[in-house]
Every structure is written in structure tokens, then in C-alpha cells.
Design a protein around this nucleic acid. Structure first.
Lengths: 212, 212
DNA sequence: TAAATAAAGGGGGTAAACCCCTATTCCTCT
DNA sequence: AGAGGAATAGGGGTTTACCCCCTTTATTTA
């Protein structure tokens, strides 16, 4: 009796390569491959070919891994999602786990580790490496300079600050006074130990608050 | 008679997956896998196990795909490098081809296309998709706003501008007058149709002139 | 209930960035 | 030989960003 798996990755070669690898595992068979989340959800619509596990990339066009995982958790809660991505930043990992992923693997794992992860997810419902566990613990008490310390409005301001807009323009958009915007800036410079707006932009991109 | 291939990629799972895929092609066999350029060059040192083709990723630690390809071209010119990467920006592709790669595939190709590319590289010495050919043609006459239009000193300035340094500090480092730095800035704003320094930073990151 | 914190906003001043124009020297091209 | 372009640099002015301090109102916490 083999467990069924579906691979979702926008890079066709990676889907085919990883699919071939998993299909070679004794206890697993790959049903089909998908290029993005939308394609997967389309496959699920006829309520056929629903796998036990989905190997999910994160960065995909149309419907990304986070959105897709959240959708599956709501509509197909028995399907277990195992994230498999190159992205290693905390924010992405936490978003993926919050969306409902049962585990998160980076693509630098070995073939044997992938097999173990698949089995663990089937048998115990989840698989968390040491790395992921540490990130989870850290998210309980975010350290200084962490994105987790930022308020929603601060993040909104930062996203605007990563554009060519002046503070006056940003104030208009956020329905605040320019003086309030300056206050936001000052608080952020202090929280994140930054010197100026350029530093803020670099920080935002590094931490995926803004995507150029 | 099978042609020999080596896969170089820092993501172990991808190496193993793609290696398995290629090993299944009739005319090819995978000798071994490497995690980075340094490991590959180490394998070549004893002049054994030198393959016909190397499937090379670009972003790798210690010795990246560009550096490694340039090294192979000089010391092992009979070895054909076929780039295989997620990176799709022109600058990276052109750097890889200039370093001596015989072809550049994105990871969204199909398994069959990879096989065809490998065969073409063996038989004709190179394999260039339509996409790559267009990038090469465009590099002959770079369009407005293109990175190819930038002088070496301008790029150097941009890299400094992507830090928290003031123009005075950048001037000191580049041994120029602050007024000259302002001149650089003005020319760049004009060339790239930008409004301010924040715009320049975003442009630089998008075009891989600066990596956060 | 009172104190502390959060959210928003103000004053005043300095530093830096931006904008537009001009100039000199050296190198390249016709 | 002379014209044109590249690289570097200056003047002067305006706009924007930064810095530090203070205030009010609403919400949260002890």
C-alpha cells in the first residue's frame, strides 16, 4: 500500500526531478505534478486524485505556497502539506507554518531526509527539523531588531518608504501627519539600529518586508 | 557509449534529484555530485573522473558558478559547462556566458529539453534557447535604463549608495569630490529615470548590482 | 482609580539630498 | 589641428530628511 504524493513547483525540471526521486521511494507514489497553487486546486475540484501529502514550494506565480496551504487547510484538512523551498528566512517559514504546513524542508536536505520527513508526516502528522524548531522558539520572544517586533502600521510605513515617495506623500496615503511619519521613522531607526532611510530599505528587502 | 556528467548545486536534494533524472537518460551517466565549485575543482585535481559535461548552478557558496566556469575554461577547456539555474536576470546570464558556459537553462525547462540541451552541447558544442539568444542580441545594443549602459565607476558608486553612507563618505572612499558624487547621482537619475536615492537602491537590487 | 503606554502630532534647528547651471583638463575621433 | 566627449569639480539655491525635545488624547495595565 503506497501513500500518494503530489509535487507543486513552478520550475518544471525540479518538479519532474523531485517527483522522480519520490516515486522511487518504496512507500510512496507520485500522482501528478503542478506548476502552481491554482493548478493544484483545479485538480482537487473533481474530488479525485487527492493525495495524502503535497510537497509544496513557496514562491510560485498566480497562487503561491502560503495561499495554497491556507486554502487546503480549510477545504481539504486531511491533506498534509510539506513545504519544500529554497527560501530560508524566518518570515517565510513562519508564514508557511501558520498557513498550516506540517513541516518545512529546505532544498539542501538529502534524499534520505526527505523520505524520513514524508514518513514522519504520514505517521505522526508533522515533521520539524531542529532548525525549524529553533525558529519557532525564537518567534515566541522576538529578539531586538526582529521583524516580529514591528507593528502592522510600522510595516505599512516601511513598505511605502521602499518607494520613491516623500514622507509628505506617504503621510497623505496613510492619512497621518508628516510629523507622525517622522515619528514612525525615528522609532524604527531606534528599534532596528539604523542610521537612515537607505538602511531601512535594505533591512526591509533582506527581511522580505518589501520585494523589489 | 555514454557521456559522463557531473551536477554542481549547493542544494543536495536538487543535485540528487537532477542527477537521478540525467542518469536515467540513455546516453548519459552521472559520475558524482558536488556542493560547490571548490568541491568540483578538488575532484578534478587528480585528473580522474573528469566528465564531458558539467551541469552548473550559479549561486553557490565558496566558489560560485561564474568563478568555477571561468576556472574550467582555462584549465579544462574540453569540459563543457551547461548552466542550470533559477536566476533569470540578464546580468547573471551574460556573466555566466562570458565566463565560458556553453548554454544556460532555467530550471523551468522540461526533462526532455534538458536531454536535448545535453545532446546539443555534446554534438555541437553549445546550446542556446531563443530566450538566451535574445538576451545576447540585446546586449549588443543595450536599451535605455539597462545595466549594460552603466560605467564601471557608476556601478561602484551605486554599490556604495546602497549603504547608509552619506555622499561625503562615499566621496572619501572613491577619492572624489562630493560634488563629483552629486554629478554621478544626477547622471544616473537621468539615465535610469529615477527620482531619488531610494529609487536607485531598489533598481540596484532588482538588477543584482547590489545584494542585500 | 491612577499610572503607564500607545498613537498621533507639534516646534525648531541642522544636515543631507536634490536640482540646475557652469568650468577645466584630458582623451578620443574626424 | 580642432571639435567633441568623458571625467572631475565648483557655485548657489531649494527641498527633504534627520534629530531632539515636547504635548494631547485614548487605551491598557496594575
Amino acid at each position: 500500500m503506497k501513500y500518494s504524493v503530489v509535487v507543486v513547483d513552478d520550475h518544471m525540471l525540479l518538479s519532474q526531478a523531485i517527483g522522480g526521486l519520490v516515486d522511487a521511494f518504496d512507500q510512496f507514489e507520485v500522482l501528478y505534478l503542478c506548476k502552481n497553487g491554482q493548478e493544484l486546486i483545479q485538480q482537487f475540484k473533481n474530488n479525485k486524485n487527492i493525495p495524502d501529502v503535497v510537497l509544496m514550494d513557496v514562491n510560485m506565480p498566480i497562487l503561491n505556497g502560503i495561499e495554497t496551504t491556507a486554502h487546503l487547510k480549510e477545504h481539504f484538512p486531511d491533506v498534509k502539506v510539506l513545504a519544500l523551498s529554497i527560501e530560508e528566512d524566518e518570515m517565510t517559514i513562519l508564514k508557511m507554518l501558520r498557513a498550516g504546513a506540517k513541516g518545512y524542508l529546505m532544498k539542501d536536505v538529502k534524499k534520505a531526509e526527505l523520505q524520513e520527513a514524508l514518513l514522519e508526516v504520514i505517521e505522526n502528522g508533522y515533521f520539524h527539523t531542529n532548525t525549524i524548531a529553533k525558529i519557532l522558539v525564537d518567534s515566541l520572544r522576538p529578539k531586538e531588531g526582529s521583524v516580529a517586533n514591528l507593528k502592522e502600521r510600522e510595516i505599512e510605513f516601511i513598505q511605502h518608504a521602499c518607494t520613491e515617495k516623500t514622507y509628505r506623500e506617504i503621510a497623505d496615503i496613510m492619512c497621518l501627519s508628516p510629523k507622525t511619519i517622522e515619528g514612525y521613522r525615528d522609532v524604527l531607526f531606534d528599534k532596528l539600529n539604523l542610521r537612515n532611510r537607505t538602511g531601512l530599505v535594505i533591512y526591509a528587502i533582506k527581511n522580505k518586508i518589501f520585494k523589489p
